[in-house]
Write a protein that binds this DNA or RNA. Sequence first.
RNA 1: GGUCCCGUGGCUUAGCCAGGAUAUAGCAUCGGGCUUCUAACCCGGGGGUCAAGGGUUCGAAUCCCUUCGGGAUCGCCA
Length: 567
Amino acid sequence: MFLQFKEQVTSILDNAIKSAGFEVDDIVLEPSPHADIASRAAFGLASKAKQNPKDIAEKIAAAVTIPDGSYVEKIGTTGPYLNITASRKYVDETVVRIRDEKTGFGGGFCTGSIMMEHTSANPNGPLHVGHIRNSVIGDTLTRILKHAGYDVEAQYYVNDMGRQIAIVSWALSQFEFDKSKKSDHAIADVYIKANADLEEHPEKVAEIDKLMQLVESGDDATINSFDEAVSLAVSGIRKTLLRMNVIHDKFVNESNFIRNGAVSRIVDEIKATGRTEIDKGALVVDLSDYGFEKTLVIQRTDGTSLYTTRDLAYHEWKGEQAERMIDVLGADHKLISGQLKATLNAIGKPEPEIVIFEFVSLPEGSMSTRRGKFITSDDLFDQIEEQAYIEVEKRRPEMTNEFKKEVANVVGMGAVRYDIVKVSPEKSTVFDWKTALDFEKQGAPFIQYAHARACSILKKAEDDGIWDSDTEVDPSVLVEDTEVALIKKMALFDKVIDQSARELKPHIFAIYARELADAFNQFYRFVPVISAEEEDMRTNRLALVDCARIVLANTLDTLGIGAPEAM
RNA sequence: GGUCCCGUGGCUUAGCCAGGAUAUAGCAUCGGGCUUCUAACCCGGGGGUCAAGGGUUCGAAUCCCUUCGGGAUCGCCA
């Protein structure tokens, strides 16, 4: 809705600038606390026209012609700023469209296909609290892009043949696997033991090297033992992801690209560019013209491939299937992903767009699966749900145990996701239990509570026989400040989807979610709905509550957070 | 040592890419509000040299340089 408003503003201002005798440049529309949208076009025009920006703004405002039926009410000035106010029609139509379009409101304006890759943690243990930053960012982005209209396929790239997996496979033959534990946790146990053992007895490393050569040459027994190790870890990881409501359409195994010959084909393609040479027995690529001083190794001395080599083949394959590729990766992948892009570019293949997030560390240092220094996501989820249960117990002691458990689950998982997604990915963070388990006031529960309130009002109205969602309404009677503010906030939905999809920044959307809930809560406190004096007013306010319910549910769904009807 | 990211009230954080109107919120703190649709809420107060220094500009949290602090990374791990 806001996108259409913005388009109209652009066209009106373009015309006004022209008829005021200036040359149209960038009209620089920006949000403003003083208007529905503001332009500081006058600043830019001032230097060119050698006039005072304030005079320019006034001349432009005087030249404004607003067509009938516009979403624009008026364009005024405050000093050099052009302040644009939306019309009543804009407000009314927002209500009508939300009721018509429901979950489709504010979306579907983009087209194209995207391959999204996220999480892709090594199957050598459970997801820890750092990995899920990747999952939450990736899954939220997927949801945002889908809402914008893109056809998105989310993939988990499974490293089923790296050195770590060779160690896991070897570990399973050396140490006892605890079947009573969740499989990914039990895998981590033997993996940690194996690493300690290898450190103590370096001569055993040769056994790992041997396994890697066997798997790459296609030895069935070795491949099967790798598969077994990987599937134990992956099945546990999938349970964790499911619990967070993170959805992958496909799990793609790295080994596919060895077995179908794609890796050796791409190595040949790279060789054909004349960029490769043998350096100390390894095959390396020269990417100095892309700004990389050091060469990139794509084949070990023993002829086996590396992660990067397989990743090149994977990206070549993805690039054939979709118009865009997006990878969500940790900060440790900055350099390697740049080299990957350069290499793909050098052989004339499409490159992925990379979303980097900074690390989550522990107070005592960075996390490491190998050394057993990590906090598992499963532990975090268990504890937060326990904490959430206590909160529900406090507030709704009269409800059934089943209700409390359900709410604790939806509130707990929502809190985890929201806490992660609300922070811009370039901030590195330190995990600590105290803040992780603290239900921050304006976090997920705040947004979920707003939704539950809306549902509760509608339910009561339905029970009282005063509300039917098919009722025709006339939103023009909704004139209270908090009502208009709420409607205008809902109208921004498309703009926020558009911006976060364009910039690949899910935190922008998370912040909007909080503001939307805030606008609803203020309306709720200030304006009576069911107890409104006139019937007409009551009906229209109920319609507004219904709109808020729809947009809040939409917003929560886009964040991958449950929208409880009661809590 | 080179490269990249971050540094905003006691704590967490938006804004920075596309420089402009009193720097955004939350937590904590102080005060007010439930006989009225769920108070996981609402209203108000106090609290900021936007790490430091320099530069560009009519104008810098935002752009450039230097320094300091934290994180990441620098070929046969991923």
